[in-house]
């Protein structure tokens, strides 16, 4: 089922709308795109284009990429160190850092120096962040929270966590309301599984089972 989340491919699709700068090797007049004009392109003159177009032109060997500043060994090392030293999530250079670095490395890898190091570093950063995220989710689910601030967490990270978190909480809601309403459950029929989980406020009634620390902020 596609509702409730985005697939990694769809996230990549969204990230491909990001503008990047290329140095074209061919000449084209202005493109009147529905999403906004692109070009005109003159050889050796940098021009901003959406990432998907850059990838496509690259496949036809019609451009080189001006690699974004943050996508290099030094800045990534710094990011990794900051992430390591910070108890909260640090701000990433773009909210699509994973997708963009992946697309760029895949298509332009051979013109980027140290591309293997860069690939490893972005992976390291993601791993660090996912580990933090898992710890926060654990705290979030164990306290009966109703709200959390999740600033700076990027979409890939949210998506990797969504099934675990939202479905898990849905199940917990069901269990909690099942705990308070033993009687109706005994008469289980087809519709019970839906009524239990859609009963407004049902999660709250039994939440005294859990600690009352409700406002743990994932981010503080």
């Amino acid at each position: 089922m596609s509702t409730g989340t985005f697939d990694p491919e769809e996230l990549e699709f969204l990230a491909e709308e990001t503008m990047v700068t290329i140095i074209p090797s061919a000449r084209y007049p202005l493109f009147y795109m529905l999403g906004g004009d692109v070009g005109p392109m003159e050889p050796s003159i940098p021009v901003p284009v959406p990432l998907w177009l850059a990838v496509h032109m690259r496949q036809r060997k019609q451009c080189r990429l001006v690699v974004p500043d943050w996508l290099a060994v030094e800045p990534l090392l710094k990011l990794k160190e900051d992430e390591n030293n910070s108890p909260v999530f640090t701000s990433m250079p773009t909210k699509h850092y994973i997708e963009i670095s992946q697309v760029i490395l895949e298509s332009f890898g051979d013109e980027i120096p140290h591309s293997n190091d860069i690939r490893r570093l972005t992976k390291d950063i993601l791993d660090l962040r996912l580990a933090k995220l898992r710890a926060s989710v654990d705290a979030f689910i164990k306290g009966s929270n109703v709200y959390a601030k999740v600033d700076n967490i990027t979409e890939v990270e949210l998506c990797s966590l969504r099934n675990l978190l939202t479905r898990g909480v849905d199940q917990l809601d069901m269990l909690r309301s099942a705990g308070t309403y033993r009687a109706p459950v005994a008469a289980a029929t087809v519709e019970d599984s839906t009524t239990l989980s859609t009963n407004p406020g049902s999660a709250v009634r039994s939440s005294r089972l859990f600690s009352s620390d409700r406002n743990t902020s994932v981010n503080s």
């Binding site: 709200y147 601030k149 600033d151 709250v204 005294r208």
Partner: peptide, 29 residues
Amino acid sequence: ILDAGTQDGREEEIVTLEEGGQYLLRYSS
């Protein structure tokens, strides 16, 4: 309003969400 319909004695919690912030909360809120 978070958790509208709270029944076990805790009052409803009201928060302000900042523009551009990111939050995790119930869809109903």
